[in-house]
Design a protein around this nucleic acid. Structure first.
Lengths: 123, 123
DNA sequence: CCGTATCCGTTATGATACTG
DNA sequence: CAGTATCATAACGGATACGG
């Protein structure tokens, strides 16, 4: 059994989740939901992403038909990325989960702290 | 900047997404949504997971307060895992995304095939 | 400006073997 | 049954440098 990213061997929604699970993909989709954006602009706004990972992430999203890539015939050339219709629908579908995440973040942090504390106490 | 799992350095919902993004976590939550389950039973039903990864995944979920762990005083001892209230609410929140995944899986597969084909054609 | 290729350390994962 | 320890390996991620 290959590593984590070995695309789904049974569960059908798995390869979709794999894409969503990718840390950067979510952030990029979030940004593009606000409107089309160019490569360097994206890199500036997506906190901490390297050019390499942005490139890789965009290629994945493009391959899955979630993001479109358009080269502008300017000088110097610019490339504009945007959510496709499918990509936009994914962004909407993530809404409920994002809301849950924000609502429950405090509870999760507390649970972690409590868990870690009980471990230390046990020693 | 450390690796992928370096818990969020800006985006607040990131550490929640990191958990959801973990391939196994989602599958385990899905299974537990059907009711409490023991360790080996889980391993049998979660396709392809190793004992080690199941152990690691369960500890993460437990630490985040999403899963509870109860030791039954039987012989041989059994351990029952179950979704907590928070865990169950996460499962519900994943519902919309899961539905999206199932609906759009064909489209994504097609997009991938088309993308790969156009790449080969370009050579 | 928009990438991609390479190098290379860090982390994740599976297999195996062993304990309570 | 329910794990954990150790080890080898593969994937991931950042930095750098170069090309379109």
């Amino acid at each position: 059994m290959p590593a984590k990213r070995a695309t789904s061997y049974a569960c059908p929604i798995r390869d979709v989740l794999d894409r969503v699970g990718d840390a950067w993909s979510v952030l990029v989709i979030m940004e593009l939901a606000g409107g089309p954006c160019r490569f360097n602009a994206l890199q500036r706004v997506v906190n901490g992403i390297s050019a390499r990972m942005l490139s890789v992430t965009l290629r994945h999203l493009e391959r899955d038909g979630l993001v479109s890539r358009r080269v502008l015939e300017t000088s110097p050339p610019q490339v504009e990325y945007a959510l496709t219709t499918t990509g936009a629908s994914l962004h909407r579908a993530m809404g409920e989960l994002a809301a849950w995440a924000e609502t429950n973040q405090p509870a999760i942090r507390e649970a972690r702290a409590a868990y870690d504390a009980s471990l230390e106490a046990a020693q």
